[in-house]
Design a protein around this nucleic acid. Structure first.
Length: 203
DNA sequence: CAATTGATCCAC
DNA sequence: TGGATCAATTGG
């Protein structure tokens, strides 16, 4: 396990996010997700993402248009799009592409690096893996609707730093989108670091 | 395999 | 305004 590069707790800037969603989903792998709660830092490496590519992507929530829930996706890139699924799990997404183009990257899994102890304390089910899934990582990092629309380009509460990896990127269809049209269901827009044990097991 | 769980969305 | 749905997780 590598440590957080101390040179940069600097957030990625808005131009990083204001790009093609699939490119951002790839480039986020290896980056650091940093969470600050009451002055204490937690840090985790992003190892799995999915791209949700706007109004024409029938798997993307924005396919149904602008609603209260999806408003953040229609806004400026580099902000958090967070929502509740199955009445239980908060899922953390990052808005991409220029304002008005409702796209986002779902962060599906992270590898704990900094202050793993604090993350472990957030989990209420003992003995379970810490954060190898989209609902688990939000629990571990205390991410919920309070951070809806949060600007990730400032070093406050929640942000993302440049990272690196020397592992091949694998790709495949996105998880849990059986409702989408076949063309979108089959698109290989899930990305992960090959062989990383923190990658989710859901299929 | 099914239960869980509640906000959201849309047809009525 | 009611009923189906859901970017998941857990324990059988």
């Amino acid at each position: 396990m590598s440590s957080l590069p101390e040179s940069s707790l600097l957030p990625l800037t808005r131009d990083f996010y204001q790009r093609d969603t699939v490119a951002v989903a790839n480039d986020l792998l290896g980056c650091w997700l940093v969470r600050e709660v009451d002055g204490a830092l937690m840090g985790a490496r992003i190892v799995e993402t999915e791209a949700y590519c706007g109004a024409h992507d029938s798997a993307c929530h924005a396919h149904r248009g602008l609603t209260t829930r999806t408003a953040a996706m229609f806004g400026a890139p580099g902000h958090a799009y967070i929502y509740l699924v199955y009445g239980m799990h908060w899922l953390f997404n990052i808005v991409t592409e220029p304002e008005g183009s409702p796209c986002a990257v779902l962060v599906r899994a992270v590898e704990p690096v900094l202050n793993e102890q604090a993350m472990r304390e957030r989990r209420l089910t003992p003995g379970k893996q810490l954060s190898n899934g989209p609902g688990k990582l939000t629990r571990a990092l205390d991410v919920d609707k309070a951070l809806y629309g949060h600007d990730l380009t400032r070093a406050e509460r929640l942000w993302i730093c440049a990272g690196s990896h020397d592992i091949p990127i694998a790709s495949g269809p996105r998880v849990g989108i059986d409702y989408a049209e076949p063309h979108d269901r089959d698109a290989p827009w899930r990305f992960w670091l090959e062989g990383n044990p923190w990658v989710s097991k859901a299929r």
